[in-house]
């Protein structure tokens, strides 16, 4: 890359950065960079793919859209927002990165994330690991029964699914029911001990949303709507998002 010459000149064209600015409040302050590098010094993805947040923003500012589309770096960003936290100009680099992911044709985006998103779209669980509502109900019941028996102090604990009128709607990362079912317990116990009135939904219980990470906005929305609709249908007052 160092050998190439960046040629500039002529009137300003509309670049990727301009499109992102249009959709963000205050344009995400994307033009305001003082190039101080505070973002990059604290970014967990700095140095990966020879890139960092400041360089990424600079490429966008210079209109290097092709390079941005080609870069794998946006997929390495964890969206932790450490950059914007200290940025003296409050530049919304995470949003720039997010939108950069969307520049790539969907089928060329990272396979793992793409597969997980697609899987979630295929079932009403919204589970990226693909377990069906029935399987989820089975696992929950199974784990609950076991704990009621083995731990007498939790003999009357509940793990309701689709309980109408519950105060809290709880979602759940697919990983626990699939690989570590006993890890479901700590939260249940807490909720039980504080006397919370809660429920899972048989639909939309899976909290992870890989479509968001995929920058597939429509699918992200579809997944989110599935779970929100379920919570609304049950008449829950508060959505407890565990992801």
């Amino acid at each position: 890359m160092a050998e190439e010459v960046i040629k500039l000149g002529g009137k300003k064209k509309s670049y990727f950065i301009d499109k992102v600015k249009e959709i963000l409040p205050d344009g995400g302050n994307l033009n305001l960079c003082l190039t101080c590098g505070a973002c990059s010094s604290g970014c967990p993805a700095t140095g990966l793919d020879n890139m960092d947040p400041r360089k990424f923003l600079r490429m966008a500012a210079l209109g290097m859209d092709e390079e941005i589309i080609k870069s794998d770096w946006p997929w390495m960003c964890t969206m932790c927002q450490r950059c914007i936290y200290v940025c003296p100009m409050k530049i919304d680099i995470p949003q720039l990165v997010y939108n950069a992911r969307g520049l790539r044709p969907r089928d060329q985006r990272p396979k793992g994330i793409l597969g997980s998103c697609d899987m979630a779209l295929r079932n009403e669980s919204t589970s990226a690991m693909g377990i069906s509502p029935d399987d989820f109900v089975f696992v929950v019941q199974d784990v609950l029964e076991e704990v009621r028996e083995s731990q007498p102090e939790f003999a009357d604990m509940e793990a309701p699914i689709d309980k109408e009128g519950a105060e809290f709607f709880l979602n759940q990362n697919s990983r626990e029911p699939v690989t570590e079912p006993n890890e479901l317990l700590p939260l249940w116990k807490i909720l039980h001990l504080v006397g919370a009135d809660w429920t899972y939904g048989s639909h939309g219980w899976a909290g992870e949303n890989y479509c968001m990470f995929l920058a597939d906005n429509d699918s992200w929305e579809k997944i989110t709507r599935t779970t929100v609709n379920q919570a609304n249908k049950l008449g829950c007052k508060i959505f407890l998002n565990t992801e």
């Binding site: 190439e4 960046i6 000149g9 190039t35 360089k55 600079r58 210079l62």
Partner: peptide
């Protein structure tokens, strides 16, 4: 065609050529 101003971008460490 114009003046060509060459400078190294301080962030990307890449040569820039600006026609103006």
């Amino acid at each position: 065609e114009g003046l060509i101003v060459s400078v190294t971008d301080h962030i990307l460490r890449m040569p820039l050529e600006i026609q103006t």
